[in-house]
């Protein structure tokens, strides 16, 4: 094999490793601290994608979509049976209450992007 082929093979391997690390090796970061109201930006995912809230209290999550992709136009909390349409650039408030400490996840309408609420 010529050197350029070796180079491409090694480069491909490294790129695959990078893709794995970049997309699948990330750690979820919360917004830091327990909050009762969180503003969540919806663009290419959710930021923050992890919200810590107090258990047993009504909390408000405000989602604002600025990304035109239709993947993100719906938000679903399957465990709470909540499904909302997120119009572009319009904050949508979702009130939730988790009675006990634990996790509750949400995802986009096609389940490609995920986020979660952790009640503490």
């Amino acid at each position: 094999m010529s050197p350029d082929k070796w180079l491409v093979l090694v480069g491909s391997g490294l790129t695959i490793g990078f893709i794995y690390w970049f997309f699948l090796g990330k750690k979820e970061e919360g917004q830091g601290g327990v909050v009762e109201r969180a503003e969540i930006k919806v663009a290419g995912g959710y930021s923050p994608a992890l919200v810590q809230v107090p258990a047993g209290k009504k909390v408000t999550l405000v989602f604002t979509r600025t990304d035109p992709t239709d993947c993100l136009e719906e938000i679903v909390f399957p465990d709470l049976k909540i499904k909302k349409t997120l119009p572009m650039n319009q904050p949508v408030e979702i009130e939730i209450k988790l009675d006990k400490p634990g996790e509750c996840s949400w995802h986009c309408g096609m389940s490609m992007y995920h986020g979660k609420v952790i009640a503490i």
């Binding site: 970049f22 663009a43 290419g44 995912g45 994608a49 990304d67 035109p68 992709t69 993947c71 490609m112």
Partner: peptide, 19 residues
């Protein structure tokens, strides 16, 4: 343009979609 916009936003979150 929409594909780029969505891709850039996703990359920022270290996520990816069809776009």
């Amino acid at each position: 343009w929409d594909f780029y916009k969505s891709t850039l936003a996703s990359i920022k979150n270290r996520a990816a979609n069809m776009d």
